[in-house]
Design a protein around this nucleic acid. Sequence first.
DNA 1: TTGAAAGCGCTAACAC
DNA 2: GTGTTAGCGCTTTCAA
Lengths: 339, 339
Amino acid sequence: MMKGKLVMHTIKDVAKIAGVSTSTVSRALSGNIPVNDDTKKRVLDAVKQLNYKPNFLAKGLKEGRSNAIGLIIPDIRNPIFPALARGVEDTARSNGFNVIFSNSDENIENEINSVNMLKNRWVDGFIFATASLDCQHIHQLREENIPVVLMVRNIEESFDAVVTNNFEASYNAVKYLIDRGLKKIAIINGRLSLSLYRERYEGYKKALEDHGIDFSEEICFNCSMANGNCYEVVKNYFSTHRDVDGVFATNDSKAIEAIRAIKDVGLRVPTDISVIGFDDIQISALLDPQLTTVAQPLYDMGKLAVEKLIKIINEKSKRKKKPQIDVVKSELVIRNSTI
Amino acid sequence: MMKGKLVMHTIKDVAKIAGVSTSTVSRALSGNIPVNDDTKKRVLDAVKQLNYKPNFLAKGLKEGRSNAIGLIIPDIRNPIFPALARGVEDTARSNGFNVIFSNSDENIENEINSVNMLKNRWVDGFIFATASLDCQHIHQLREENIPVVLMVRNIEESFDAVVTNNFEASYNAVKYLIDRGLKKIAIINGRLSLSLYRERYEGYKKALEDHGIDFSEEICFNCSMANGNCYEVVKNYFSTHRDVDGVFATNDSKAIEAIRAIKDVGLRVPTDISVIGFDDIQISALLDPQLTTVAQPLYDMGKLAVEKLIKIINEKSKRKKKPQIDVVKSELVIRNSTI
DNA sequence: TTGAAAGCGCTAACAC
DNA sequence: GTGTTAGCGCTTTCAA
């Protein structure tokens, strides 16, 4: 078996060159154990000379941790996840953790498979941005004392989580439309099995109520399927109705489809109909018209989730803290899709 | 130190319950070494009973491989990378590999740091979608016999890579505009230090040449900086010129900005000016007008890159094969931004 | 301050 | 077909 020119050196090689034992090398490198300055220097020189890098597999095996975290999301192609993932990766890396990521497609089987694979000492903890009602496997993780933080999508009070103020932000978005003089505001909703959509829905209803606007089921569009049908639903409605003057879409993708549908029936945005989205995905600022939307601090949410997770991982005293749900603020960004 | 209710069981526990040695357990689980059917059954029962999962750290340490690959990209928020990453992740997972991902921001320092971290037995190979001219560290990997596959962005002939037919696809895109009767076609180019942009540029020039259209430097816009200034460059030009009737943008983001600029100076797409993009990122189909663009099979490129990489990893006989560059086909998708 | 030795959990000779 | 044993590369007692 031919090996490459440069082999991977081990701690033994370093020890030999520095003329010390492997334990001394280990100590010199770990930093927090006293080592004679001279010895240390010799070790460091040897390390440099050999370009020695410790084997993380060995270190992890010995220490019982891997310094990696698992990131489980539905699909990185869903435009809210890149920013989230980036926040996670940056923060993890700057804390010395690697990120192993996995897409579940909202499919519980996939998710369980990934979790099972990663549980075997691959990762020290998990970040989930996924939540079916069926979260047996996440409860199981907790029982096995494996740290878990939920992100974006919350399940129940019993998990640590980072979420946004969906209710309040939605309330404010709808209130903004009302303040601009709009009289009849539709909502395009998502899967109500996700708490985030339920909360946005509640915010919408409360805003109407507080401002004396009648709530009407008829203009609560539900686009819970794949993206395609949102366009159809909106187009259908507006080809026969001209009474609605505002649309609150519970995410930007739906808003984009709605705008296309509205244009296609010959109405103008925002002149005839104002549209607000939610998420502020990257392209929202590039559209025509540029989308007024609720900006979630996605990057920061990822960052915060990792910070929480690492804190839990490092709490060696495993006395379970009460789980804490961090709520970050989403804020309305006013652009040109609203009058 | 309190441990959780459920501890991680080891192969020893399984062996004890099954009444066999640890090596028998190992053999029964590996599958490819003959074990008595009865014994095997007892082992499998014990595994199930304990919910035993092998420790990958130990396995990796022993076998000298981790079954993970490193994915180094500039930024997952750049819209071409999610699809690529998804192709990579799916394919890796279905081959029993995990993927550790890292964003380099095109910054060589970051990239070297990540590579150094991952080299230490964290991963068995790398996929890079990044290429500064300065690729010392990638050469180094090769010298150390660590498998590398380049994706999307090629550096030089000496590496395995998966790229698209940039020249040909660009040629065809520009030819399409010419065939539609357009007479003066501008190009919006990217960083010419990247071969992919050079190739697209060449395809553009050749198409003009072959069809007797004069090439003019004046309408070769260079938007190599962050996205922002593409809008400005295009807007500036069109506020004083009305001669150009077609724009070939070398990626979709630039196309989107160009369209916005064109509209903002009071011209119409495609009536006055046709615009073609490159990449077919997800939102291109959702824009108004929907973008005519060259679709790169991003998911498949990710898939292919992983397949190549795993093949190299598994070739235990390290007699270096000559590196091979796979070229996949990008094809023009005609939508509404061209007449 | 340092070295010797044990051991993390697993696999693979090598015996039988 | 199965058990015994050594060892992957590291950290960490325990002694000196």
